[in-house]
Protein backbone atom coordinates (compact mmCIF):
# COMPACT_ATOMS: atom_id res chain seq x y z
CA UNK A 1 0.00 0.00 0.00
CA UNK A 2 1.29 3.42 -0.85
CA UNK A 3 2.43 4.95 2.37
CA UNK A 4 5.40 7.20 1.80
CA UNK A 5 4.82 10.76 0.55
CA UNK A 6 6.72 10.09 -2.68
CA UNK A 7 4.64 7.03 -3.42
CA UNK A 8 1.48 9.00 -2.79
CA UNK A 9 2.54 11.84 -5.07
CA UNK A 10 3.30 9.33 -7.79
CA UNK A 11 -0.05 7.70 -7.21
CA UNK A 12 -1.79 11.07 -7.54
CA UNK A 13 -0.19 11.59 -10.94
CA UNK A 14 -1.50 8.17 -11.96
CA UNK A 15 -4.98 9.10 -10.82
CA UNK A 16 -4.97 12.18 -13.05
CA UNK A 17 -3.88 10.12 -16.05
CA UNK A 18 -6.57 7.54 -15.40
CA UNK A 19 -9.11 10.32 -14.97
CA UNK A 20 -8.27 11.66 -18.42
CA UNK A 21 -8.54 8.17 -19.88
CA UNK A 22 -11.95 7.77 -18.28
CA UNK A 23 -13.11 11.08 -19.72
CA UNK A 24 -12.02 10.04 -23.19
CA UNK A 25 -13.75 6.69 -22.84
CA UNK A 26 -16.95 8.38 -21.68
CA UNK A 27 -16.95 10.66 -24.71
CA UNK A 28 -16.19 7.63 -26.87
CA UNK A 29 -19.10 5.63 -25.57
CA UNK A 30 -21.52 8.48 -26.24
CA UNK A 31 -20.00 9.16 -29.64
CA UNK A 32 -20.29 5.55 -30.73
CA UNK A 33 -23.94 5.54 -29.76
CA UNK A 34 -25.02 8.92 -31.13
CA UNK A 35 -22.89 9.84 -34.15
CA UNK A 36 -24.23 8.00 -37.21
CA UNK A 37 -20.81 7.90 -38.83
CA UNK A 38 -19.49 5.81 -35.96
CA UNK A 39 -22.37 3.35 -35.95
CA UNK A 40 -20.95 -0.14 -36.33
CA UNK A 41 -22.92 -3.20 -37.34
CA UNK A 42 -26.41 -2.54 -38.65
CA UNK A 43 -28.00 0.91 -38.68
CA UNK A 44 -29.37 1.78 -35.31
CA UNK A 45 -28.91 -0.28 -32.18
CA UNK A 46 -27.87 -3.87 -32.65
CA UNK A 47 -25.76 -6.57 -31.02
CA UNK A 48 -22.49 -5.07 -32.22
CA UNK A 49 -23.31 -1.77 -30.54
CA UNK A 50 -24.18 -3.59 -27.35
CA UNK A 51 -20.90 -5.48 -27.28
CA UNK A 52 -18.90 -2.34 -28.00
CA UNK A 53 -20.72 -0.40 -25.32
CA UNK A 54 -20.20 -3.11 -22.74
CA UNK A 55 -16.53 -3.44 -23.66
CA UNK A 56 -15.93 0.27 -23.16
CA UNK A 57 -17.84 0.15 -19.89
CA UNK A 58 -15.83 -2.85 -18.71
CA UNK A 59 -12.59 -1.10 -19.56
CA UNK A 60 -13.67 1.96 -17.59
CA UNK A 61 -14.77 -0.25 -14.72
CA UNK A 62 -11.41 -1.96 -14.80
CA UNK A 63 -9.61 1.37 -14.55
CA UNK A 64 -11.68 2.40 -11.56
CA UNK A 65 -11.33 -0.96 -9.84
CA UNK A 66 -7.65 -1.58 -10.34
CA UNK A 67 -6.32 1.93 -9.95
CA UNK A 68 -8.74 4.01 -7.92
CA UNK A 69 -9.73 1.12 -5.70
CA UNK A 70 -6.11 -0.09 -5.44
CA UNK A 71 -7.07 -3.58 -6.47
CA UNK A 72 -3.83 -3.93 -8.42
CA UNK A 73 -1.81 -4.13 -5.24
CA UNK A 74 -4.36 -5.73 -2.96
CA UNK A 75 -4.05 -9.04 -1.21
CA UNK A 76 -5.03 -12.31 -2.85
CA UNK A 77 -7.81 -12.84 -0.35
CA UNK A 78 -9.58 -9.72 -1.57
CA UNK A 79 -9.28 -10.86 -5.16
CA UNK A 80 -10.77 -14.15 -4.11
CA UNK A 81 -13.72 -12.57 -2.28
CA UNK A 82 -14.60 -10.16 -5.04
CA UNK A 83 -13.93 -12.70 -7.75
CA UNK A 84 -16.21 -15.21 -6.06
CA UNK A 85 -19.02 -12.69 -6.16
CA UNK A 86 -18.47 -11.98 -9.84
CA UNK A 87 -18.39 -15.70 -10.64
CA UNK A 88 -21.63 -16.30 -8.76
CA UNK A 89 -23.33 -13.29 -10.37
CA UNK A 90 -22.38 -14.72 -13.75
CA UNK A 91 -23.74 -18.11 -12.67
CA UNK A 92 -27.01 -16.45 -11.73
CA UNK A 93 -27.22 -14.80 -15.12
CA UNK A 94 -26.11 -17.63 -17.37
CA UNK A 95 -27.90 -20.49 -15.66
CA UNK A 96 -31.16 -18.56 -15.48
CA UNK A 97 -30.71 -17.67 -19.14
CA UNK A 98 -30.22 -21.35 -19.88
CA UNK A 99 -33.50 -22.08 -18.15
CA UNK A 100 -35.25 -19.41 -20.22
CA UNK A 101 -33.90 -20.51 -23.58
CA UNK A 102 -34.37 -24.21 -23.00
CA UNK A 103 -38.08 -24.69 -22.44
CA UNK A 104 -40.06 -27.86 -22.98
CA UNK A 105 -41.36 -27.90 -26.53
CA UNK A 106 -44.49 -29.95 -26.91
CA UNK A 107 -46.40 -30.01 -30.18
CA UNK A 108 -45.19 -26.56 -31.07
CA UNK A 109 -45.93 -25.02 -27.68
CA UNK A 110 -42.93 -23.62 -25.95
CA UNK A 111 -43.82 -24.32 -22.37
CA UNK A 112 -41.92 -22.62 -19.64
CA UNK A 113 -40.97 -19.62 -21.71
CA UNK A 114 -41.32 -16.50 -19.64
CA UNK A 115 -44.09 -14.81 -21.60
Amino acid sequence: MADSPEAIHKAKKNYIIVFLILMCMTVATVAVATIPALDIGKHGFDTADMILGLLIASFKAGCVMFIFMHLNHEKKLIYFLFGLAIVLALCLYFITKLAFIDPIIFEGFRLGEPK
Partner: peptide, 13 residues
Amino acid sequence: AHHMYLTGMGPVV
Protein backbone atom coordinates in the same frame (compact mmCIF):
# COMPACT_ATOMS: atom_id res chain seq x y z
CA ALA B 1 -33.93 -24.89 -9.85
CA HIS B 2 -34.56 -28.33 -8.42
CA HIS B 3 -37.37 -26.45 -6.68
CA MET B 4 -38.68 -25.53 -10.12
CA TYR B 5 -38.72 -28.76 -12.10
CA LEU B 6 -42.37 -28.24 -12.98
CA THR B 7 -41.96 -24.83 -14.56
CA GLY B 8 -41.37 -26.22 -18.01
CA MET B 9 -37.59 -26.40 -17.99
CA GLY B 10 -36.16 -28.24 -20.94
CA PRO B 11 -33.90 -31.28 -20.84
CA VAL B 12 -30.54 -29.47 -20.90
CA VAL B 13 -31.14 -27.18 -17.98
